[in-house]
Every structure is written in structure tokens, then in C-alpha cells.
């Protein structure tokens, strides 16, 4: 993919955007625009729906039919819209708090219904819009404004949840692998049925700062090491079956589950 003019697909009158320096969400937005172009989506028949949170603000910057809804409930609007006008391509952007906490039940049921929607869940392990509280994806030990002594609860595996609930396409991508994101998002949109993509993003302003993970580049490198860790873990498994005992869990990217809808 060469020569995409992002500005042609952005609402320039909405700029400057609200995202902080180093935030990973912009990487996802650009990958989404590249994926949409590769599919040659009819821009007049593509709708972008979002809930509340930093990730959900992305839709406002896209020069399309965009719907910024209530906290956690983007999938419900998207479901009604798709069923009322099935010719629309409906893409939902949500975050880990929006999609897994307040909107968790809607996500489960959207996956169960398997309506032809594509849901990008940007996971930065925190509530960035409200100042860095713990999200349900924060790993145990993670420091946030509401877990000053470290998170104690288990974190969600969003992809495992989506598979169990019935989504017919489940994938995980990462902002440190932006070009892989293009293909994953395009495959998700092209899939007929509920496509769920968890995308590991990063929040240097809050999560990174509170956990001393550095700024954007350092967080991307850290994310990348977690991806490499998967390769090492898989190699180790193949040889000895040993498992990693502690530290941030490895990130497995790619299409994790796919079946005909």
C-alpha cells in the first residue's frame, strides 16, 4: 500500500485531535484508513460508530457517517443500524473500559448474535479520558489512580471472551505491528459476521507514566518485546514445554479464530 493521502479521509475541520503525544490510537486510525482503502469501501455507505473514551473519539476525525454514542453502548446502535439498512458497512471503535466494563454485556451479545459488524477494541489498559483509572484489562500489579497499590483483580482476555460468546472472527493486533494491523482490519471488515479485533495500544500519558514504562517509543518497544516473548514461549513450548512465570503476559497477534458466520 503506497501513497494514501490520509487527509482526504479526515475531517480537517475537526483537527487538531485530542490525543496525547505518543498515544497509540492514531496508529490504529491510520491502519483503519489504509484497510478501508484496500477494500475500496464505499465511503457513503460506511458508518463508524463509537462509544465514550479516547479510542471512541477517533470516529469524529473520519470524514464519513460517524456516530459517537453513549458509554459502552456503541454496539447496540450499530446493531440497530445494520439491521435497518443492511447494505451499510458498520465499523465500531471502542476501548477496553467502554467495550469490556460498562459495555461488556453488549459485546457478549453482539458476538452471540454474530450480526455483520466489525468491532475494533483498542486496549491500553486504562481509562485515559478520565485521567488514568484502572481498566478491566489492567494486569495485576498495574498502578493507576484507582489502584495506587497495584491492581489486584484478574484482567480480561478480550479475545477469549469474544470467541466464547460466539464471534465468528476474532483477531488481535498491536500498534507496534502497524502494517500487520492493516491486513487484520481488512480481513475483519471483509468477514461476514461479527468480527472482533482487540488491538494492543498504549497510553504513555497515564498508564505509561504511572507504571514507569516510558513514553510512546519505549511503550511500543515494550509491546514489541511482549510479542517477541510469544515467539520465544512458543519455541520453548515446542522444545521443553516450559512456561513463563511472571512479568507482563505475552501478546499473541494474528487471526485467533475464524468460522463461517
Amino acid at each position: 500500500m503506497t501513497g494514501i493521502e490520509y487527509r482526504d479521509r479526515l475531517r480537517r475541520q475537526m483537527l487538531p485531535h485530542i490525543l496525547c503525544p505518543g498515544c497509540g490510537h492514531g496508529i490504529v486510525l491510520k491502519a483503519l484508513l489504509r484497510a478501508a482503502r484496500s477494500l475500496e469501501l464505499d465511503w457513503d455507505r460506511t458508518v463508524f460508530v463509537a462509544g465514550i473514551g479516547c479510542s471512541s473519539r477517533l470516529v469524529g476525525y473520519i470524514d464519513g457517517c460517524t456516530l459517537h454514542t453513549t458509554h459502552g453502548r456503541a454496539l447496540t446502535f450499530a446493531t440497530g443500524m445494520k439491521l435497518a439498512r443492511p447494505e451499510l458497512t458498520v465499523i465500531v471503535i471502542t476501548g477496553d473500559g467502554d467495550g469490556l466494563a460498562i459495555g461488556g454485556n453488549h459485546l457478549i451479545h453482539a458476538a452471540r448474535r454474530d450480526v455483520d459488524l466489525t468491532c475494533l477494541l483498542l486496549n491500553n489498559e486504562t481509562y485515559g479520558m478520565t485521567g488514568g483509572q484502572a481498566a478491566p484489562t489492567a494486569e495485576p500489579g498495574a498502578i493507576s489512580t484507582t489502584t495506587p497499590g497495584g491492581a489486584r483483580e484478574r484482567s480480561f482476555d478480550a479475545c477469549a471472551l469474544a470467541v466464547a460468546a460466539g464471534a465468528s472472527f476474532v483477531a488481535r493486533g498491536a500498534t507496534s505491528l502497524p502494517l500487520e494491523l492493516d491486513g487484520l482490519i481488512a480481513r475483519g471488515i471483509a468477514h461476514r459476521g461479527f468480527s472482533f479485533l482487540e488491538i494492543a495500544s498504549d497510553c504513555p500519558e497515564y498508564f505509561g507514566r504511572y507504571n514507569q514504562l516510558g513514553r510512546g517509543p519505549e511503550m511500543l518497544q515494550l509491546q514489541r518485546r511482549r510479542l517477541d516473548e510469544v515467539d520465544r514461549t512458543l519455541r520453548a513450548k515446542r522444545s521443553l514445554g516450559s512456561r513463563r512465570a511472571e512479568g507482563p503476559p505475552p501478546l499473541r497477534t494474528g487471526v485467533l479464530h475464524e468460522r463461517p458466520a
Binding site: T69, R73, T76, F77, T79, G80, M81, A84, H106
Partner: peptide
């Protein structure tokens, strides 16, 4: 979810 779906359909 019910009213959310209604609003999505209405916008369509």
C-alpha cells in the same frame, strides 16, 4: 441496548 438499537435504526 433496546433504545440504542432503536436510535441506530432511526439514524438509518
Amino acid at each position: 441496548a433496546s433504545l440504542g438499537a432503536v436510535l441506530g435504526a432511526s439514524l438509518a
